[in-house]
């Protein structure tokens, strides 16, 4: 069986570590060999962050190179564009349409490319865009963006719905389970 490569990208502090933890554990429980490469330290302070999740019969490299990702799950629009070249030809980008201005844009040294997703779609990339922040707020917390996005991407994995729910129960703190299940469903059914 070939190795499948998933990238989770976003802005430091958006909760990508929890998403990769959930996905990694679930894939291991499904019987795959798994590697998850995280980012700690300096980059977490509002910088661009990327987490790699790879699974298959035997996974060697923990990282993903350009042109190799089957799925990119992006927590923010600009970050999806930043890592678009990592996508395989027939790959899929699941992206939260939320826009978070980076410092060069805030201080007027650069412009935020508002229409970059349309440009990438025109170039033939397969992109599923959704307002995950609005859905997360609907579920009860803006912090659940990560779980909404996992819900949206879930159908791309050969894993039954119930096991995703079980994985959420096993990963998040008990008092947040119901809210996160709701967030997952909103992504899954959107």
């Amino acid at each position: 069986m070939k190795t499948t490569s998933v990238m989770i990208v976003g802005v430091g502090g958006q909760g990508s570590l929890l998403a990769s933890k959930l996905l990694g554990r679930l894939l291991m429980d499904e019987g795959h060999d798994v590697k998850v490469s995280e980012v700690h330290g300096m980059s977490q302070r509002g910088g661009s962050v990327v987490t790699y999740v790879r699974f298959g019969e035997k996974v060697y490299s923990p990282i993903i190179a350009e042109g190799e990702a089957d799925i990119i799950i992006s927590f923010e629009k600009l970050e999806a564009a930043r890592y678009a070249s990592y996508l395989k030809k027939d790959g899929l980008i699941v992206v939260n349409t939320q826009q978070i201005d980076p410092m060069p844009v805030i201080i007027g040294n650069a412009e935020y490319p508002e229409n970059v997703l349309d440009e990438l779609k025109d170039k033939g990339l397969n992109i599923w865009a959704l307002d995950a922040l609005a859905l997360a707020e609907q579920a009860g917390s803006s912090k659940a963006v990560n779980i909404v996005l996992m819900g949206k991407a879930a159908k791309q994995f050969d894993i039954p719905y119930e096991r995703w729910i079980k994985a959420i129960e096993n990963t998040v703190a008990p008092k947040f389970v119901e809210m996160n299940k709701k967030a997952f469903d909103l992504g899954y059914n959107n």
């Binding site: 070249s85 060069p104 170039k123």
Partner: peptide
């Protein structure tokens, strides 16, 4: 992979 032509601003920490 396919790259956007738009300039992607850096996002430093």
């Amino acid at each position: 992979g396919i790259k956007a032509d738009a300039v992607i601003p850096n996002r430093p920490p």
